[in-house]
Simulated scan of single mutants.
Amino acid sequence: MAVIPLVICDDSNMARKQLVRSLPEGWGVSITQATNGEEALTALRQGLGQVMLLDLTMPILDGYGTLAAIRNEGLAVKVIVVSGDVQEQAVARVRELGALDFIRKPADPTELATVLQRHGIYSPSPTTPAEPVARPELEVSFRDAFREVVNVSMGRAGALLAKALDVFVQLPIPNVNILEVSELHMTLVDAQREDRLSAVCQGYIGEGIAGEALLIFHDSEFDDMARLVRWREAGESGDIEMLLDLSSIIIGACLAGIAEQFDIRFSQGHPTILGHHASIDELIVVNKTRWKKTLAVELSYSLEGHNVHFDLLLLFTEDSVKRITRKIGYLMS
């Protein structure tokens, strides 16, 4: 049985490792790994990929750009997108660009095998011995693994936001770091593009994992947000109600995605206005006694065609890191 050249393109070591483990047993493939679209295109031009499993949210060249380049160059490859970006528009766009199918992360081995069979890429043959699947071993750091968990959760939050506002949400690459409070201050300053901000904070706890979510809005974008939401009550109370509604969607969906992957349940506190039309320094002064050393995840959503951005920080307590590490270990086992 001929060996099929397969390219797995994803910027996350954990995601690539999960995909390798999800491939059908006994499927004869030679695997080339790529961490972004440019690397994948190089492999395809060298004839190393008849089939490709492609992520969408990547640095240098994302999945959309990769699909466009494949079509423009006429490269002969069957592409299945495997992504955490589960917006309806995302699925439609990749199909228009030539992808055969779409699988949401993390890929289920049964679903992956079904999709491969549907498109004539893989066919189990009980009577013919097959080449064993080449399974390269990958070292996955805590930062990379947790970033992938957040990436999946972020995609689900983006899909809910896209549906609620009837927009396309441009998803970021999550940034994961262990920060001291002084470094957190610098991170918030970096996120600031103007003097006045508003922020919503919501605490959460579940099975030894606890923290706070901080969602930052830029005051200059309030009018655009109000038009998207299609209502606005007069005065400050209307702004606050709008912020709380949007925060409920984004923070709730992100935490639900993490909880689902870790097989836990978060208890969430009531969202509160942390600062309204305030500066970064004012936000830090109010909360510096609560934020010490923290595992911080930075996300910056933006809405295509609109001047609207949301800067989301998920701040996990230092004590949560051990529990998160164990949960990630279960995902990788």
Rank of each mutant, 00 (worst) to 15 (best):
I251Q: 04
G252F: 11
L228P: 15
C254I: 11
F217P: 06
I103A: 04
E148M: 11
P172M: 04
V51S: 05
G65M: 09
E304G: 06
A157M: 07
A92P: 09
G269K: 05
F266P: 03
P109A: 10
D195R: 11
D281R: 13
T127Q: 03
A210H: 08
A162T: 01
V167S: 05
A68T: 03
L244Q: 13
R104I: 02
P172T: 01
L243M: 13
L165D: 09
G275K: 00
S237P: 00
A134L: 14
Y122N: 08
Q50L: 14
A259C: 10
P172I: 00
L165P: 10
L246F: 10
I258M: 14
V176R: 02
V169A: 14
V285A: 15
A145M: 04
V82T: 00
S267K: 05
D85T: 11
F217T: 05
P24W: 07
I178K: 02
D101P: 03
Y204S: 04
L19F: 06
M332I: 10
L100T: 00
D62W: 14
G65I: 00
N13I: 00
L313G: 04
G208T: 09
L274D: 15
L161F: 06
V86Y: 03
G329P: 06
L41Y: 06
R135Y: 08
L19T: 11
L97F: 04
T294G: 12
A162E: 12
W231R: 15
E139V: 03
Q268L: 15
A134I: 08
D62Q: 13
S279W: 03
E207N: 12
I60H: 10
A113N: 08
F146P: 03
L19M: 13
Q202F: 08
I258S: 09
I273T: 04
A164F: 06
I209Y: 07
